Structure formats: structure tokens, C-alpha cells
Simulated scan of single mutants.
Amino acid sequence: MSAEAVRTRVARSARRPASHLPPRSLGRVAEVSRTFVGAWPVYDVSPLGAEPAVRVLYVHGGGYVDELVRPHWALIRTLVERAGARVVVPAYVLAPRGTADRSVPAAADLLSGLIEGGGAGGTVLVGDSAGAGLALAAAQWLRDRTGAQPSRIVLISPWLDVTMSHPDQEAIEAGDPMLARPGLREAGRLYAGTLAAEDPRVSPLRGSFAGLAPLTVFTGTRDVLSTDSRELLRRARADGAEVEFHEEPGLPHVYPLLPVPEGRAARERIVALVREAADG
């Protein structure tokens, strides 16, 4: 999208906010409740009639300006049904009202509460796109303040640097069917608020990876944000972090959420990682 398209979308959402409610069908397989943590509605989704085996904090994408949509809820349902997970899902305040200086500490507090809350299994932090950026920044924030970390961090097509300044992005953008740099820069500007775009709370790629939980990253080569994933791999390994890296040729942004064979394989791997945290 263009910068103007993002501004139009944000203005329309201010007049008529989109719904972030889960689909009714989710209630057939899960117990769904909602509370408020500060200004954030937070959904708690657990297996129906069973004790959850593991905890997941899922942070949704949408360029920081869009709400939860059906593909997000489909992945949440998969984690509940296939991994026996309790999935906590914040419908965080969107930009420009929700900015990184407030969103990152709030997400870190949610993550800390799940880690310290006890119960069976471990805690897995999952995010897609912009939500992956918020998730990683929250993990960095929590590490710096308490040293605590989840069992694993799973990042799906992460948006980690809102400056959109990588030299390879221009060539990738020409073949990207979903994203464009002008709109991403504008959405990133709105999310940054009073912070610099280079601040690690806004662009966690520019923060340290030392001391983070093991990372799993999924990206596709037709995603202008694939440069963020490749840079994460390089910087994280340089900082001594453990990274499992999946890059699928010819696939677009957030392909693990799509109904394609490679998407199904990625979801299978995510389910397996969450199950490993349950066993660990």
C-alpha cells in the first residue's frame, strides 16, 4: 500500500473500528474468555474440557494498524486443537493510538505473567508480521529487566525494522504480491510515535539477541520483509543465539497462515515446537 492508503485506512478505522472478535466456531473446540489488561482486550483460548499442556502468547500481525482476522484465529485454533495449548491473544491498541513505547512493556508484562504463572509445560511466544516485531521487542525488554525468557520464540514473516532501509528490498518488492515499502514506512512511523524508527522497541532487529530464547523463523523469498529475517539470522548467530531458520522459495508474506502445502508444513512445525515446550 501507499502511505496515503495507510492514512485512509487508519482514518476509516477510527470512525468505524474493525472487529477483533473470534469466530463463533472457535467455541466448538475451545473455552474462550476475554478480560482487559489496561486498555487491551485479551482473549484466553483453552482446550475444551481438558487441561492445557502448554502456554502460548500469540501476537497478531496487521502492520500495527489492522485487527485480528480469520487466518490468525485459524492458527490459534490449530494450536489449541493440535498442541493442547492455552493461547493468550492480546487485541493490542492499534497505531497511532497504540505506540511502541507503551505496547512493548505491556506485551512484556503479559509474557512475564504466563512464564511465572505456573501450570503444565512451558511458554512459547508466537508472532506474525508486525506482531512478530512486537513479540521480539517484548522478549528483549523482558530479558533486559528480569532475565526471564519463554521456552521458544516463533516468528512468522517478522517485520523487525520499520525503517525499510535494507538495500535488497527494492528488488524484492517488485515481486511481492502483498506489501510495498511506502505503506510499511508510514505504518511504522505511526507505530513509532515519539520514538525514533531505529529504537529497538520499534525496530527490534537493532537490539541485542544475546540471552534470548531459541528462535524459529519462517519467511518466503517473495516477501519484501525477508531481508529482516535474513538479518536476524546473521545478527542473532553473531550474538550467540540459537536460530532455526525456514525460507521458502517463491512464497509471499505470512505463507504459514495460507492454505498451501508449504503453509501446512510450517504449521505442522509450529505445532511440533509448541508440543516440545509442553514436554520440556
Rank of each mutant, 00 (worst) to 15 (best):
R12M: 11
A14D: 12
A18V: 06
R24V: 05
S25H: 11
L26Y: 06
V32R: 11
A39Y: 00
W40N: 10
D44G: 08
D44H: 15
V45E: 10
P47C: 05
G49T: 08
E51G: 10
G63L: 02
G63P: 00
D66R: 15
L68V: 12
A74F: 00
V80F: 09
V80D: 02
A83C: 12
G84W: 06
A85M: 11
V88R: 12
V88C: 06
A91L: 08
L94S: 04
A95F: 10
D109Y: 08
L114V: 06
L114N: 11
G121H: 12
D128V: 12
S129D: 13
G133V: 11
L134K: 01
A135L: 08
Q140D: 11
R145M: 05
R145S: 07
A148I: 01
Q149I: 04
T163F: 04
M164I: 08
P167G: 13
A171P: 03
I172D: 09
L179Q: 05
A180Y: 01
A180N: 03
L190N: 07
P200C: 08
P204V: 13
L205C: 01
R206F: 07
F209M: 14
L212S: 02
A213C: 12
F218E: 02
L233P: 03
R237M: 08
F245M: 08
E247N: 13
G250T: 11
L251E: 01
H253N: 09
P256T: 05
P256I: 04
P256F: 03
L257G: 10
L258C: 05
P259D: 06
V260Y: 00
R269K: 13
V271Q: 02
E276R: 15
